[in-house]
Simulated assay, not measured.
Amino acid sequence: MPIQFAKEPHNGSTLVNASLAQLSTRIPSGLPPSLAGVNLGALNVQAPHAIFDLQADAITQGKGLASARATGFRYPVEVAGVSVAAAEVHADASGSANLVANINCGPFVAASARALNDLAKLAPVNTGQFEACLLRFSAIPLMAIWLKSTGGASDLIYPLEPAPSVLVAGKLYSESDFLNAVMPIAQKRVASGGSQPVP
């Protein structure tokens, strides 16, 4: 079954398009390198996926993925089918978009696009029912595709490149295997008050 995505917040795409239009008025030297030479008028906003954030203290307390907080929506932005940016949108309690928090052009943009394409070809994914979300764990730091099961199967985690040394980018992890891998780092971060360097 095709991977599912969250319902976008009301007015989300409109807000992202308005922010991209403002971006297009910048002089070239003010644009991120990935957008240099890109026809900003041809940017195409794609359907978003939900963003969830993990906290180190919650992991060390054994709360798992259920403790991840929904914090926004991430809209991939493409030009001619190539992902060049991602816009993070926040929504209010009524479900309406009220802020474009950032427009990111870093390495996770292309990694996310590759991951979603690759995941759709994997048997455990295309034979199940999953919603694709972006999972962030700033304590490591880590970004991953979180495949939240909507059909009774177990959730799966797919770390994006670049991944910390305790994980392999592009490998499917069960929730328990993922949590076991990141637990030592989470414990060190909590013990050090957040100053522990990432291995």
Rank of each mutant, 00 (worst) to 15 (best):
M1E: 15
P2L: 11
P2T: 12
Q4H: 09
A6D: 09
E8D: 13
P9T: 11
P9Q: 04
G12K: 04
S13C: 08
S13D: 13
S13G: 08
T14A: 11
L15S: 03
L15Y: 06
V16L: 06
S19T: 03
I27P: 14
S29A: 14
G30Q: 12
P32Y: 03
L35G: 05
G37L: 08
N39G: 01
L40E: 00
L43G: 00
N44V: 05
N44G: 01
A50I: 11
I51Y: 04
F52D: 09
Q55D: 12
D57T: 10
D57Y: 07
G62Q: 08
K63P: 12
K63Q: 13
G64H: 10
G64Q: 12
A70T: 07
V77K: 04
V77S: 01
A80D: 13
G81H: 03
A85V: 09
A85L: 06
A85G: 03
E88H: 10
V89L: 11
D92V: 01
N98R: 05
I103Y: 06
I103D: 11
C105V: 10
F108N: 15
A111T: 08
A111Q: 02
A111M: 10
S112Q: 13
A113H: 07
L116T: 05
L116M: 09
N117W: 07
L119E: 12
L122W: 08
A123H: 12
N126M: 10
T127V: 11
G128C: 10
F130G: 06
A132C: 10
L134M: 15
R136V: 15
I140Q: 13
P141H: 06
P141R: 06
L142H: 02
L142R: 01
A144Y: 02
A144H: 03
S149H: 10
S149G: 15
S154R: 14
D155W: 12
L156P: 01
I157E: 11
Y158F: 15
P159V: 10
L160K: 03
L160P: 06
S165M: 05
V166C: 11
V168G: 04
G170Y: 03
K171H: 09
K171G: 05
Y173D: 13
Y173L: 07
D177S: 14
P184V: 02
Q187Y: 01
K188I: 00
K188W: 01
V190F: 03
S195P: 00
P197S: 07
P199A: 05
